[in-house]
């Protein structure tokens, strides 16, 4: 089976042009793109992504600016490439869950990844999003209980985001046996790909991820590559490398 992989980028980081260019480049390889809408208190993100988000907020970029960037990306990618928005609960709650979902629909977003909504709090969001045809992406972790994995596997749309370890974005890859068990458990019970994220940063860790999961998500490393130069050349080189290897 072909792998199903995603990249994460912070919206309009380092600036609008380079973000759009990086998004388009990454979708030459990746099947989907997670677009982070910066939040000032990102409890699930490590220093690299938190700092990028902070810079975007400080530069005065507004929600509507990000939606315009998304429109431009959407207009230039093949229909089978999906866009997800990753942001924190308050951004959604602040605009109203229903209204936020409508905005996402209007801009061609497939679904939402909300790291501060654990499974036990997800109903109030999923009930509305599902009616709007949006995918709410669930997380599984090394500690997820079998009963919860079963519930998630059966109701998941889009893909299941498995967190490869305890920690936050930007931690080092450390595939413990228990996440392998959780991923295997989920795979047998779901129709959607089970994708591994957190700590994946090079070809080697991508390969490791694919031994267990249906795909991988690379986040922090993408931001670091954008920080390496002023013209996305390191970033583009990395995407080319992935295209060649997978």
């Amino acid at each position: 089976m072909k792998s199903y992989n995603g990249a994460y980028l912070v919206a309009d980081y380092p600036d609008r042009e380079r973000f759009i260019s990086a998004a388009l480049k990454s979708l030459e390889f990746f099947d989907f793109l997670e677009i982070g809408i910066p939040f000032s208190d990102p409890v699930s993100d490590g220093t690299v992504i938190a700092k990028a988000a902070y810079d975007v907020i400080e530069s005065g970029v507004k929600f509507n600016d990000i939606m315009k960037s998304i429109d431009e990306i959407k207009s230039k990618i093949p229909a089978d490439r999906k866009l997800y928005v990753m942001t924190y609960a308050n951004h959604i709650y602040h605009r109203g869950i229903q209204n936020f979902g409508k905005i996402m629909n209007d801009h061609g977003i497939s679904g939402m990844i909300i790291p501060d909504i654990p499974f036990i709090e997800s109903r109030r969001f999923t009930d509305i999003f599902e009616q709007q045809g949006l995918e709410f992406i669930y997380f599984i972790t090394p500690e997820s209980k079998p009963e919860q994995i079963k519930q998630i596997a059966q109701s998941a749309k889009g893909f299941i985001y498995s967190v490869s370890m305890r920690g936050i974005t930007g931690s080092s890859m450390n595939l413990k046996a228990d996440i392998k068990t959780a991923v295997a458990d989920a795979k047998t019970q779901t129709k959607v790909p089970v994708v591994l994220g957190f700590g994946i940063r090079d070809v080697e860790s991508c390969k490791n991820a694919l031994e267990t999961a249906d795909g991988f998500i690379i986040g922090t490393r993408m931001i670091e590559l954008l920080n390496e130069d002023a013209d996305n050349s390191s970033f583009n080189k990395f995407v080319e490398e992935l295209k060649a290897k997978f």
Binding site: V43, I117, P118, F119, I120, E121, F139, E143, S144, G167
Partner: peptide, 20 residues
């Protein structure tokens, strides 16, 4: 039981922390 005072409180944290 879920930590709500009426509509406030609760537990809005990453899944990987919920177990802890």
């Amino acid at each position: 039981q879920k930590g709500f005072f009426g509509e406030y409180g609760g537990s809005f944290i990453p899944e990987q922390l919920q177990v802890i």
